[in-house]
Nucleic acid binder design. Structure first.
Lengths: 169, 169
DNA sequence: GCTTTTCCCATGGCATCCCATATATGCCCA
DNA sequence: TGGGCATATATGGGATGCCATGGGAAAAGC
């Protein structure tokens, strides 16, 4: 497995440390994270959510790829560079697979005592558990709505239940 | 056979483990489940039913397919990602073909002592047996209704009825 | 010198692995 | 054709290893 999937919720301890879920660490290592030495977890505030985005080398390369598509010295590129790179922190994992989150990052996501890690394939996000619950609810509603558009006309199921022929997958 | 069909009911033991019905395991293995090692069963709350959806690699790829149409780092993609990936748990099968269900998933489906596995082709669902019985009853009524609409001439059954029979255990 | 960060170790809970058993299924042979 | 054996499957329990978490000590920064 080399994608981030599943969600996990871990504690922030008194020193501000959080364990990266073991499955995510495994993905990071496969992705080129030098175990025990430097290398790192690329982490930055999500552009459109009170959360943090994070990932390994692959994520960094993807960002590079996005930028390389834009002409040098264009306003667009400058803005995107700032947005994407400006707030990036490279966090080091300690021997036990933990990171410590800088105050600026913690503030952006409203993190206090717990962190919910959400796998999103190439990257993962870190949320304050309560906020994530709300966000997820919203996202689910949206998907339901989209699904109904997809399936309009070819299903007879009621909206509530029984519609197990889901286009969710 | 590489589709999930039939229904089976198995017990949840004291540790929260459930045996995946052997026929379903066979499908998962064909689908690319790395036996004995990592890899897994992708599992998430059904969008519109008090049940869990689950499947193997094929299901995961289907989800990826939905996202691949959207540009990276768009708001739309992030939101959809959260909805599709955010709820997904990757469950590992132990040597005896069992999974252990996290509390969050169990809660969504109201699972306590037993699980009814319902094959749906590319994926399968996990239901609390009582709830599934009710839902099936409703489905039957609907089928009857649909048949009347079709009126005479169209004799073969509607999709709902195909795999429901054959409960065991 | 004091505070903050990093490293290392201890521990307890939980998940996984392994083995044992009972029940059902199919097959073989009488 | 029927009985019995062999295999597969589901389920239970014990043990072991991993992992998240906490705390202390050493190192680095102010």
């Amino acid at each position: 497995m080399n994608r981030f999937v599943s969600t996990f919720t871990n504690k922030i301890d008194a020193k501000g440390r959080v364990s990266i879920p073991a499955p995510f660490r495994a993905v990071l290592e496969r992705d080129g994270y030098a175990h025990g030495s430097v290398g790192g977890l690329y982490c930055y505030p999500s552009l459109d959510a009170p959360a943090l985005d994070a990932g390994g080398e692959r994520l960094a390369k993807k960002i590079d790829g996005l930028l390389s598509g834009l002409p040098d010295y264009s306003d667009e590129r400058d803005e995107l560079s700032v947005a994407l790179y400006g707030d990036v922190q490279v966090l080091g994992l300690d021997g036990d697979g933990r990171i410590s989150l800088p105050e600026s990052l913690r503030a952006h996501a409203g993190l206090t005592t717990q962190v919910t890690f959400v796998g999103l394939g190439d990257k993962f996000q870190m949320w304050e558990p309560g906020r994530f619950a709300k966000r997820r609810e919203r996202a689910r509603e949206k998907v339901q709505h989209t699904r109904k558009l997809f399936s309009a006309g070819n299903r007879h199921s009621s909206p509530e239940e029984g519609g197990d022929e889901g286009a969710r997958g």
